[in-house]
Simulated assay, not measured.
Amino acid sequence: MYQNKTFLAIIPARSGSKGLPNKNIKNLCGKPLMAWSIEAGLQSKYIDEVVVSTDSEEYAKIAREHGAQVPFLRPMELSLDTSTTFDSIKHTIDFYKNQLNKTFDYIVLLEPTSPLREVKDIDQAIEILFLNQNTEAIVGICKTESQNPAFLINLTHTNTIEGYTNKNFKPIRRQEIEDVYFFEGTIYISKTEILLQKQNFYHHKTMGYIVPKWKSLEVDDEDDFLMIETMMKKHILKN
């Protein structure tokens, strides 16, 4: 709880990953991948409950072993490749309200594929959100460098290149370009009522929580996993 407001952390962990099979329980530096997100949520000063939404009894068992609540198995129709994260969030909110008679003022989404977040990211993001009374959500963002539009190109039908924004290929130093950010998966927080209304964390009253490049890595495939393992050893386990 923070400033008399309650927080539910939801960790969506379906079992049907195609890019890296069973990635959510793959061993990362001695723990199943999703355990890093579970433990970060449990260590937060402000989160009241951490729940894992999964379609797998095996995943549910592992989640409970690491301290998460798993009061249901997610229906298969909400666990397809075409299912959205919002589908699982809404199902969780509805289950807590209708089956457990519990509601929360804020939802904190902790994607298990972003295990490099630290507990301080969760707590700082909550504090920053509350300092800005005109905002309703906060999400993780990271400054893009090599992928800045100033350095991007289009490929023409003759396979020649043309600048995406820098049409004349004018030499540009990094110090001269405008900062541009991309969405990443470290943290998502929203007022529950607004999330249900917008069905999205992204809107005009959403703040950005800036994270460094190394922390923005997300697990999609084996290469991502290996890079994250290296960053975990360098930045998290070292400390």
Score class of each variant (00 low, 15 high):
Glu39Thr: 09
Glu39Val: 07
Ala40Gly: 03
Ala40His: 06
Gly41Asp: 03
Leu42Arg: 14
Gln43Ser: 08
Ser44Gly: 08
Ser44Lys: 13
Ser44Asp: 06
Ser44Thr: 11
Lys45Phe: 00
Lys45Glu: 05
Lys45Trp: 02
Tyr46Trp: 05
Ile47Asp: 02
Ile47Lys: 11
Ile47Leu: 09
Asp48Cys: 13
Asp48Met: 03
Val50Cys: 02
Val50Gly: 08
Val51Trp: 06
Val52Trp: 03
Ser53Arg: 14
Ser53Pro: 10
Ser53Gln: 09
Thr54Pro: 06
Asp55Tyr: 10
Ser56Gln: 08
Ser56Phe: 05
Ser56Pro: 09
Glu57Thr: 14
Glu57Arg: 13
Tyr59Asp: 07
Tyr59Gly: 11
Lys61Leu: 05
Ala63Leu: 14
Arg64Leu: 08
His66Lys: 15
Gly67Ile: 09
Ala68Phe: 04
Gln69His: 14
Gln69Ile: 05
Val70Phe: 06
Phe72Leu: 13
Phe72Arg: 15
Leu73Ala: 01
Leu73Lys: 11
Arg74Met: 12
Met76Glu: 09
Met76Phe: 01
Glu77Leu: 04
Glu77Asn: 13
Leu78Tyr: 09
Ser79Thr: 09
Leu80Tyr: 00
Leu80Gln: 15
Asp81Leu: 13
Asp81Lys: 15
Ser83Trp: 03
Thr84Arg: 13
Thr85Ser: 07
Thr85Cys: 10
Phe86Ala: 10
Phe86Glu: 04
Asp87Glu: 07
Ser88Trp: 00
Ser88Ala: 13
Ser88Val: 06
Ser88Lys: 14
Ile89Ala: 03
Ile89Tyr: 02
Ile89Cys: 06
Thr92Gly: 03
Thr92Gln: 09
Ile93Arg: 12
Asp94Pro: 07
Asp94Cys: 05
Asp94Val: 14
Phe95Trp: 14
Phe95Ser: 11
Tyr96Trp: 12
Tyr96Ser: 06
Lys97Phe: 00
Asn98Asp: 11
Gln99Val: 09
Leu100Thr: 10
Leu100Asp: 00
Asn101Ser: 15
Asn101Ala: 13
Lys102Met: 08
Thr103Asn: 13
Thr103Lys: 15
Thr103Val: 13
Thr103Gly: 03
Phe104Met: 12
Asp105His: 04
Tyr106Arg: 08
Ile107Met: 04
Val108Ile: 15
Val108Glu: 01
Leu110Gly: 05
Glu111Ser: 15
Thr113Leu: 08
Thr113Glu: 14
Thr113Met: 03
Thr113Ala: 09
Ser114Met: 10
Ser114His: 11
Pro115Cys: 06
Pro115Leu: 11
Leu116His: 07
Leu116Gln: 07
Arg117Gln: 05
Glu118Arg: 15
Lys120Arg: 12
Lys120Gly: 00
Asp121Tyr: 08
Asp121His: 14
Ala125Val: 06
Ile126Ala: 04
Ile126Ser: 03
Glu127His: 05
Ile128Glu: 07
Ile128Val: 13
Leu129Ser: 02
Leu131Phe: 01
Leu131Pro: 00
Gln133Trp: 01
Gln133Leu: 11
Thr135Trp: 02
Ala137Phe: 00
Ala137Trp: 01
Ile138Val: 09
Ile138Cys: 10
Val139Trp: 01
Cys142Gln: 14
Lys143Phe: 01
Lys143Gly: 06
Glu145Arg: 14
Glu145Trp: 04
Glu145Tyr: 11
Ser146Phe: 04
Ser146Tyr: 03
Gln147Ser: 09
Gln147Leu: 02
Asn148Trp: 01
Leu152Ile: 00
Asn154Asp: 12
Asn154Arg: 13
Asn154Gly: 04
Leu155Glu: 09
Leu155Lys: 15
Leu155Tyr: 01
His157Leu: 05
His157Glu: 05
Thr158Ile: 07
Thr158Lys: 14
